[in-house]
Nucleic acid binder design. Sequence first.
DNA 1: ATCGTGACGAACG
DNA 2: CCGTTCGCCACGA
Length: 105
Amino acid sequence: MNGESFYTKVYEIVKKIPSGKVTSYGRVAIILGNPRSARAVGYALNALKKDNTQEIPWQRVINSKGFISFKGDTFRANLQRKLLEKEGIVFHSDARIDFKIFGWP
DNA sequence: ATCGTGACGAACG
DNA sequence: CCGTTCGCCACGA
């Protein structure tokens, strides 16, 4: 309706994350202009699992602690890790990603 | 319009 | 460091 929906804004930003880099939901929210909508950002990315024909690199968004954020969906979590490793991202032994090295921006 | 939901995050204790 | 609580938000029933 409004020229650009919240979801669209999220996707536009996520598409800018370069391969081999990651950012957090909160970070995307800040770039959006809504610092407090981190939760909604996750909600927006969740909507992609049904139809991601635009090939939005959803895997490049993790939580602020540097971990993959999936509670029950282990299938998605494993897929995300696999995709990221394929891009060259290295996980610590505790499954954490170092923003100092792979963080974007 | 109201309410429950969830791929968040910061603050507590 | 760890679990819990609480605030925030877009969405859909």
